[in-house]
Amino acid sequence: MVLPVTSRAAWTATPLPAVIVPDAVGRALAAEVRRRVEGAGYTRFTRVDRGSYDVATSPNEAELLEALTGVAAEVTGRSLALVEARVLRLHPGDYLLVRHDRVHDDRPIELVLDLSPAIVAGAEVHYRHRGQVFFTVPSAPGSLAIVERGPTVMCNHTYVSRRLAGASVVRLMVLLRAEPRGDEV
C-alpha cells in the first residue's frame, strides 16, 4: 500500500477532514476478501425504512484491518485503534439512509474500503455536514476513504439502480478511535 503524499496534506487542509487513498488494495486481495466474507455469510437487513442491504459483522480480516488502521494513522497523524468493522454488500435496489446512521460525538475515524469487483455507476457514499453533502466517496474499487466523524457528520449509501442488473457493491466499513496517550487513564 503506497500512500500518496497529498493525502496527509489534504486531511489537514479542511475543517471537515476527509480524503480518498486511491488503489489502497489490489483486485486480487479484494477478490480474496470478498470470497472469505461470502463464505462466512451475510445477513440481509430488511428494515426498508432505514436501509436494504447485506451485512457481515466482524469480518475475520485482522491483517487487512491492521494495515488499514496504519494507513489511517499515517494520514490523520493520530494513534488509532479498531472499534468495529463490517462488510456491506448492496445489490440493485439497495441503499442505506441517513436515518440508519448514528451520531458520533467523540470524532472517530471511519474508513470505507471499496471491495467491489467493478465500478457501479452512481453507487456512492455521501458524508453530510448538517444535511449537506460535503464529501462523496465514488465507486472506485480498491480505494480507501478516510473520514472524521464529527458530531455534525452523517452518512448514507446511495440507492443502487435496478437498471444495473448484476451490479454488486461491497464496502468494508471500519470505525477507529484515537488511542489514549500514555499519560491518560
Partner: peptide
C-alpha cells in the same frame, strides 16, 4: 424519469 425513485417513508 428513468432512474428516479422515492424510497420507503411514511
Amino acid at each position: 424519469r428513468a432512474g428516479h425513485y422515492l424510497l420507503p417513508h411514511t
